[in-house]
């Protein structure tokens, strides 16, 4: 018995040793690869908006193909998370689906951080309901009454006799802030309406898609990059002209819930961060926004751009 134990222990040791040697060799091989000293290398940490996280991830992947020695890490969590970590100096680029508030800029400057804003794309906030919901269009005023809890049944709008379940993102979300200002408070500074406390605060845009797809009575909002054929995006009107959330309506601002998407850096970007910012604003970077369902910033200047290509690219 004792011999057997010794034997197994020995084989275990040798196995461990060989693993160690092997990994050491691999590590050495990895290090010994020749790096052109002129080639940029480094690490970029990007944090923030859940709306942009997919687009940012795609840009990062394309970027790393061009610059294999720069590692880019992208995490979501919400615009608030990105802005907070820019202020706390734990990221290089904060992504946000809303502008920084004056209070946040003040807090940043107190901590020696000077945020510089880049508008990288445009987005429409889509309002989605279940495909089984007969409602196709609502005005901003209707949405206001739904999300503040003034109307609680779909019958009011000619729908089924169901209690409306309102879905929102967590307070860390830039889309939450945008929707609160534009819809819940109707874009008025002196309006202090709040989301109805019954509103479900979900942790990601994907959870909103899941709940809306599964629940006939649910209504939620999210960046139009998340609109899929599992849910139905409503036509929205400010006044009496209803428009669907699509690229052309966001460019022409006909869709009332259109907004910018932003990247923030601490001061003027430099080194690999600047390289990444330039890449995001280059045609190749902007192309990634188009592919994830957003509107590139340059499209505004290129209004002559063939509508067909834009739509084809979206599909």
């Amino acid at each position: 018995m004792k011999v057997k134990l010794k034997f197994t222990r020995q084989s275990l040791c040798s196995a461990l040793a060989s693993i160690l040697i092997l990994s050491a060799m691999l590590f050495a091989a990895g290090c010994s690869e020749d790096i052109d000293p002129n080639e940029p290398s480094g690490f970029v940490q990007i944090k923030g908006s859940d709306t942009i996280v997919n687009a940012a991830q795609k840009i990062a992947e394309e970027f790393m193909k061009d610059y294999p020695h720069v590692f880019v890490a992208v995490t979501g969590g919400g615009s608030g998370v990105g802005i907070a970590s820019l202020i706390n100096k734990t990221c290089d680029i904060a992504t946000a689906s809303r502008e920084m508030k004056p209070k946040e800029i003040e807090m940043a400057e107190q901590r020696g951080v000077f945020p510089k804003e880049f508008t990288v794309a445009y987005d429409g906030v889509a309002v989605i309901v279940s495909k089984d919901n007969p409602i196709d269009k609502l005005t901003i005023e209707d949405l206001h009454r739904i999300f503040t809890g003034k109307v609680t049944n779909w019958e009011e709008f000619g729908g089924k006799d169901l209690h409306i379940v309102t879905l929102s993102r967590e307070v860390s979300s830039g889309t939450h802030m945008y929707f609160k200002e534009e819809v819940v408070q109707l874009g008025k500074k002196d309006n202090h309406d709040e989301f109805s406390p019954e509103t479900l605060l979900l942790t990601s845009s994907q959870t909103i898609v899941e709940e809306v797809a599964a629940n006939d009575a649910a209504i939620g909002y999210l960046g139009m990059g998340y609109v899929s054929d599992r849910t139905k995006a409503l036509l929205v009107a400010k006044g009496d002209e209803f428009h669907p959330p699509d690229i052309n309506n966001v460019i022409s601002k006909a869709y009332p819930l259109s907004r910018g998407l932003y990247f923030y850096t601490n001061g003027e970007p430099n080194g690999v961060t600047k390289l990444f910012m330039d890449f995001a604003l280059s045609p190749k970077g902007q192309q990634q926004f188009i592919e994830t369902g957003f509107v590139p910033v340059k499209a505004e200047e290129k209004e002559t751009m063939d509508e067909g290509t834009l739509n084809a690219q979206k599909d």
Binding site: G77, G78, G80, V81, I83, A84, S85, I87, N88, E104, M107, E170, V171, S172, E198, L200, L201, T203
Partner: peptide
């Protein structure tokens, strides 16, 4: 009813607060 707990509040909001 949907409701919110102490723990979920801390976890959901901690990331966005400035220290």
């Amino acid at each position: 009813q949907p409701l919110r707990t102490l723990t979920a509040t801390i976890a959901g909001e901690m990331g966005e607060t400035v220290s």
